[in-house]
Nucleic acid binder design. Structure first.
Lengths: 114, 114
DNA sequence: TAGAATCATTACGAATGCGAAACATTCGGA
DNA sequence: TCCGAATGTTTCGCATTCGTAATGATTCTA
């Protein structure tokens, strides 16, 4: 494993430890991946699409949206042009949560280099 | 959120998506964090120590070690100098698993920049 | 416009994780 | 030596997740 990869893992270790120490809502890897996907990929996100892109079953996507919706990190909106579909929308609280992760990246990166 | 933090999250998103697509064993965030901690921090790791450092309950650490041990990603060894304690040891399979994550970091980083 | 196809959700049973508390083992000091 | 402290595990009850299959709602098609 070369330096860059090891540094990336070390960075993630530090962030995850900070997250545990802060008692942030603990999401499963699927839930967290889905959240990152929705916030970082600029496109319309449907259950079907997320299930395909993330290699998850559709019920797993539905449940992840239930959980993330309960935390008010995402919101469902039925697609007006095809009312069978739902569109996953971002929320302020979701942005804040991910910003906290971004902050932890910087905190930990500074801690390591400093 | 500044550029570096966003890039770190984007990198992690890409790696997690790859991990889902590859059907890697899905660990909980606690399990994965514990694994990273054991492999990246050079020190003796005990249940008690891990529980404190990672803000987990001791039973949660025990269970995580059960799971990671079942995958042969870590191994328990009783401390000969204090037979109440166990020392968590690394394994070849655990190294391989983390190396795969390291590789995915590079694959995804190349994919993004290239 | 009736039936097939598509999208998301729910029902179901099995598996897994959690914390608190109880437990067994080992160490260490009086 | 003996008893309290420390360490890791197990037990318990509860909550959550998973995938498959069935269900409900909507759209497409012939």
């Amino acid at each position: 494993m070369d330096i860059a990869a090891k540094q990336a893992l070390e960075l993630w270790r530090g962030v995850m430890v900070l997250a545990l120490q802060r008692d942030l809502p603990d999401l499963t890897s699927r839930q967290f991946t889905l959240l990152l996907h929705v916030y970082l990929k600029d496109q319309a996100h449907t259950v079907r699409g997320l299930a395909e892109e993330l290699n998850m079953s559709k019920p797993a996507v539905t449940r992840a949206l239930d959980r993330l919706g309960g935390l008010d990190f995402v919101r469902r909106k039925t697609d007006d042009r095809d009312r069978r579909s739902i569109l996953v929308q971002r929320t302020v609280k979701g942005s804040v949560f991910l910003r906290e992760f971004g902050d932890m990246v910087e905190i930990y990166a500074a801690e390591v280099s400093g």
